[in-house]
Design a protein around this nucleic acid. Structure first.
Lengths: 385, 385
DNA sequence: ATCACTTACGAAGGAGCACTTCATTATTAG
DNA sequence: CTAATAATGAAGTGCTCCTTCGTAAGTGAT
């Protein structure tokens, strides 16, 4: 039994305001008549709603569109620029950031390289630089940032403390949420990077429209993100998706098949070895193909476990190795066909490197929508908070 | 972006009617003042709402509670008896049914034994008998049945056709939903039995209050049910939870460790073998304990996969073998401690044999609530439909 | 039995929101 | 310049909820 709050007349207005905002956010600038038709309200009522929203700063009039019959209608749009969001992807080698408006439209992106072994301060400074870079590029003031969503590798507590991170040694035990809240005067959300990537693929990428999605991060390290019923699944202790920890999933050592392939020339940097093998496999090298086969054999076990447990609509292959999805997808599909009860769609990521930042943006948008634009959350505040 | 329907004044009333109903269903009979306080509405408004609901047949006045100061207040209750629900559990050896009111309060239960190899007609007749038995016991007319929820073993399509059932050979390929809709003049919902058991445990059993639950059906056959974010997780093709199909989960053959234990006397019925081993293990028989150890070793692999993937709050052990949870839980916990990232609560089912029927009832209640008592679903109809 | 106290009931008056209707206004097409 | 088109603004209506206040129906003390 959810909320027991009964509704006042003002609540009705609030409901209608939110409906108007949703309609405006869904489809570009709209006239009063269009809004009225979409929402089912009468024109005069809609006028009052829009006037109120304009007064609060959530909605703004735009010039009428010319060339129509009759008296030109005034048009209104949602002011997605009343506030801004940043998404940050803190990886081993790079810190990426993106800045968007309240609709998740990306306005600026930056990247700051960091050494994997860099000390904590250096990495935090890179975050600072990445974000200020975005602010400068989009000419946005720090105070106009409403929410920052951060994706990083590692296992997190629900509050944003890092339990464990294989990729970034300095991260271990860090209260990342607390640190970033000291650095930035906005709300800070921390999430696992694979989960954010999954969200991005489900919102704007290869799994757009699907409500149940399994995202596989395949690369030097394995990771997963789950979208269940359209939302990021964290689990009770924010530890969902860690199947790589199970030896029988055969995921932990799977990348070694590619790294340790005989055909990789001595002296190749460890981070390039797998790429070399995958490229050789694409050319048809039999030794490389055999290594890929062994790799996919292992990959398919953990994947089949997730598919059998969750029965997702789509499985998305992302992460570094997904650049070679042409090599990986056919054999993976073949193994899953045999192992699964119902075969899901298996697709390659379409967002690539920007996947996590985009997911972070999407996550922030969703958080904001839950807070502001949901009927249960009280009246709309004045826009500039 | 959900619905774009704006709200009329009548919608406000509808909202408040639903709030009143929710309040009444949440806590026994209430006076107007109590209702007003809980919902935040004024007394006169609440009076009007309650009068309307009384007229529609959803609410009814009950005698005032004596022994209070001041003028005795009129009290109202939700008429949970405006309609009735049946839950059915179609197992290999038994068909169970339960009848409840709209609040899921169980009013009658029946059981009809069936032979596992019984032909289709016989099993359908048993269902018929089980349901009419419930109707007779509770003196309810067939026409007062609103919804029937059915749990059965096997893999289903989203529409309620049976893809595959190991336990009931005659079931294979059957359009069970269609058949039952011919037999009963009410809405029919079909679901996998383990999923319903999971729901029951999450609503009224060992996992009450938890939003993410993994239910393990351990018995001669293995099955699972997942509750994610408080709701039954079916998956895109209603095939979620079938990890037993993955050889590496080691679930499929796990029960064989108990069945084929050396100490089981020759000639024991196959369905009693595992029970014999478990009982011997409880007495401390070393051979039986070793078999249990091997069994739990295997059980823990698939369980760890689910826990690592989903990070549930609670894992519930149900099914036939859960009668021996005192023997199974400690070693299972020990293995999971080692394998899992975050250890969930591991508990034994508290509902036992009635688990699936109760889950069916809960499922029907939830379906009804979604249809009738949710703000987005339009106005409340007249109670006797 | 009576009186004070407590609490609920019911009626009356008021405010807010959305609806319908209609005269007015701004633009395009001929 | 006129007719047609479509949006605007103002006026009047109905519904829902709110507050207020006098009345009714009990309990407990004298």
């Amino acid at each position: 039994m959810a909320d027991l709050r009964g509704g006042d007349l003002s609540r009705l207005r609030q409901l209608n305001s939110l409906t108007a905002i949703r309609a405006l956010r869904g489809a570009g600038p709209l006239t009063l008549s269009a809004l009225a038709e979409r929402t089912g309200l009468s024109r005069p009522s809609m006028k009052e709603v829009v006037d109120e929203l304009t007064g609060l700063g959530w909605v703004e009039e735009v010039p009428p569109s010319p060339g129509t019959m009759g008296r030109p209608a005034r048009r209104y749009r949602f002011r997605a620029d009343s506030g801004y969001l940043v998404g940050v992807d803190i990886g081993g080698h790079n810190v990426r950031a993106a800045l968007s408006d309240l609709d998740g439209e990306i306005l600026a992106e930056t990247r700051q390289p960091v050494l994997p072994g860099a000390p904590l301060d250096e990495r935090l400074a890179a975050i600072e630089r990445a974000v200020s870079g975005c602010l400068a590029l989009s000419r946005t003031a720090l105070d106009d940032l409403w929410t920052m969503a951060v994706g990083t590798t590692g296992v997190l507590t629900p509050e944003g403390r890092i339990t464990y991170s294989a990729a970034i040694p300095a991260w271990r035990g860090l209260d990342l949420g607390g640190k970033l809240r000291e650095m930035f005067p906005c709300e800070v959300l921390i999430e696992n990077d694979s989960r954010l990537a999954a969200l991005a693929e489900a919102r704007r990428g290869a799994a757009r429209g699907a409500r149940d999605v399994v995202f596989l991060h395949v690369g030097r390290r394995m990771g997963t993100g789950l979208i269940i019923d359209g939302r990021v699944h964290r689990g009770f202790g924010a530890a969902a998706g860690e199947i790589v920890m199970l030896p029988q999933s055969r995921w932990f050592d799977a990348p070694e098949h590619l790294n340790a392939c005989e055909i990789v020339p001595k002296g190749t940097a460890p981070e390039d070895a797998a790429g070399y093998t995958l490229a050789a496999a694409r050319r048809g090298d039999p030794v490389a193909l055999a290594a890929v086969d062994r790799y996919v054999d292992d990959l398919a076990v953990g994947t089949a476990a997730m598919v059998l447990i969750l029965d997702p609509e789509v499985v998305v292959l992302g992460g570094g190795f997904s650049r070679s999805s042409d090599v990986l997808l056919p054999p993976l599909r073949e193994r899953l066909e045999r192992a699964c009860m119902r075969m899901p769609e298996v697709r390659a990521s379409t967002l690539g490197e920007e996947c996590v930042v985009m997911g972070a943006i999407d996550y922030a948008v969703e958080h904001l929508d839950d807070q502001l634009f949901t009927p249960d959350t009280g009246p709309l505040p004045l826009s500039p908070r």
